[in-house]
Design a protein around this nucleic acid. Sequence first.
DNA 1: ACGCTCACTCTACGACCGTTGAGCGAGGGG
DNA 2: CCCCTCGCTCAACGGTCGTAGAGTGAGCGT
Lengths: 179, 179
Amino acid sequence: MTPTSRDAKRARTAQRILEAARQEFAAHGFDAATIRGIAGAAGVDASLVMQHYGSKAALFTAAAQLPGTDREGAAEHLLDVLTVRLGDLPPETSALLRSMLTVPEAAAAVRTHLDERVDNLARSLDGDDARLRALLTVSGILGLTLTQHFLKLRAFDDVPHESLLRAAHIWTAYLSGTS
Amino acid sequence: MTPTSRDAKRARTAQRILEAARQEFAAHGFDAATIRGIAGAAGVDASLVMQHYGSKAALFTAAAQLPGTDREGAAEHLLDVLTVRLGDLPPETSALLRSMLTVPEAAAAVRTHLDERVDNLARSLDGDDARLRALLTVSGILGLTLTQHFLKLRAFDDVPHESLLRAAHIWTAYLSGTS
DNA sequence: ACGCTCACTCTACGACCGTTGAGCGAGGGG
DNA sequence: CCCCTCGCTCAACGGTCGTAGAGTGAGCGT
């Protein structure tokens, strides 16, 4: 092995475990995913996972996270999010979203994230119903994400991505206009 | 006891179990809900639940279901759904929705239901992008349902129900107009 | 070259799960 | 009035989970 120290090897193992955890949590959710399964996918023993991360909950916290909310450029950022989401979801996002209906801490994390998103978006809009339109937009994006990546509605097979993007533009136009 | 036969008593117990199952499945999801917990809430022993419904999966199938899709009146029906959803969700709906991200059969049931809804709505609309608008609408309603009843976004405290209803009207206007 | 550190594995514990079969006791049919 | 049906409970099994602690072997410092 290259002259890397033992610490580096341990750190690389920790990274492999974390990656396996993301995949398992993303695929099965927090409850259904098992420490043994994660350890097996990472090619190590189950108790090593505990020595690295302390508990299953702590491992989940380290593995599942939402993409950081950019501070500004709300309206255009929505387009980016929607555009990006047309591809695959990163496993750490998938892991958190998949558990948000069954694990209270995951629900709290998503709730906090979306609350912040609504606030940021509403702040960059005009009109007294800005908050309402921001709420409609954020929950709409969540709905699209879930119906596409988790429920896999048939309609996504028929509708080309280009049409979805065009719809997103129309949406932002509705967003910017006063009610 | 009134001169009801033993069969009637058994049927009433089955109903109590089913109701308790709906509550538990709605509150915790399929995996986290336990037969013992359901039996306890119904005031009976756990094995009686098995004698009545055969298995946990069968009990879930009997307890969790989506409201039937009305055959016609798609656009106005959406308004009704949204209006109704401003109140509480029935436990059988909550049970299915809460497990749709972690239990494959629940996901399949919701997927089939929403596919059908998209088809019905698209059929009652004009324009070649009718299917796209139907998809946007159905996933938007799902997003609103989840953000309100499961994630409980803060924005729902600030936005009065009346404003949400008005937004729903605007939405249907967008729905009916060609892109 | 030796010994010690430490990343990693092995084994096991206690809890809880879904599920099963035997037993019990009330209450209606003959 | 007796007996038998049957709704219900009790006790237990096999399995899987998260987690803990002892043991082991390879590799670095001296």
